[in-house]
């Protein structure tokens, strides 16, 4: 991945706009099976990243990702903050070591495993991991960005049929079935926004 400062600043702007556009929807999803704050929390996190996008974009990519992770942790709050924060911080730490497509796929796998440990969750628990795992599989296959985005969307949709085993939604037991997981939904939105940029600009 060779992202320059312009790419990084543009990606931050895209992610922030995507979350802003879908904030109410994310909160509505969270209201159905949780506490209804996911949209507001994500907006707060992305706004904080956006506010320092120029400083972040000027950093080397690994340090930039680590910084984004930290800003998300400090600002999202809620259960999603530590999960997104861990993902970005681990990606940044791993990417500092090597810079090939294979290394990126391995780093992504490692970072997703760290998210799973942080959330004490695994596949099928109705969390953002249910988007991250299939996305990682597409990255390993070196799929085109459009295909990865479609995979993320359908993976988020597939959480509707799952019964939550983590977080507040798990308190609802079988009543959590029939609602898309808000974390999976925001994860798919962000993945698709990032993939859309790669499709258009192919920075690498």
């Amino acid at each position: 991945m060779h992202l320059d400062a312009t790419d990084l600043a543009a990606l931050i702007g895209l992610c922030r706009a995507e979350i802003d556009r879908h904030g109410e929807h994310l909160s509505a999803l969270d209201s159905a099976i949780g506490d209804g704050d996911h949209g507001a929390n994500m907006r707060r996190g992305l706004e904080a990243v956006f506010a320092e996008r120029d400083a972040i974009a000027a950093l080397p990519l690994p340090a930039a990702l680590e910084r984004i992770g930290l800003v998300l942790v400090m600002n999202i709050g809620g259960a999603a903050g530590p999960l997104y924060g861990t993902l970005l911080m681990e990606l940044g730490r791993g990417l500092g070591i090597a810079d090939t497509p294979e290394a990126f796929a391995a780093t992504l796998e490692h970072a997703i495993a760290a998210v799973a440990r942080r959330g004490r969750s695994g596949p099928g628990d109705k969390t953002l991991l249910d988007v991250l795992y299939p996305v990682q599989a597409e990255v390993v296959r070196r799929s085109a960005p459009g295909r990865i985005a479609a995979c993320a969307r359908s993976a988020a949709h597939s959480t509707e049929a799952m019964q939550a085993r983590r977080g507040r939604a798990s308190f609802l037991g079988p009543r959590s079935i029939g609602h898309e997981d808000p974390g999976a939904s925001s994860c798919a939105l962000l993945t698709a926004a990032i993939c859309g940029y790669f499709e258009e600009h192919r920075p690498s």
């Binding site: 704050d37 929390n41 707060r44 942790v73 400090m74 709050g77 809620g78």
Partner: peptide
């Protein structure tokens, strides 16, 4: 509470 005083938690 979260950073804005609503229900939630925050690292800082």
């Amino acid at each position: 509470g979260n950073a804005e005083g609503g229900l939630g938690t925050h690292v800082a």
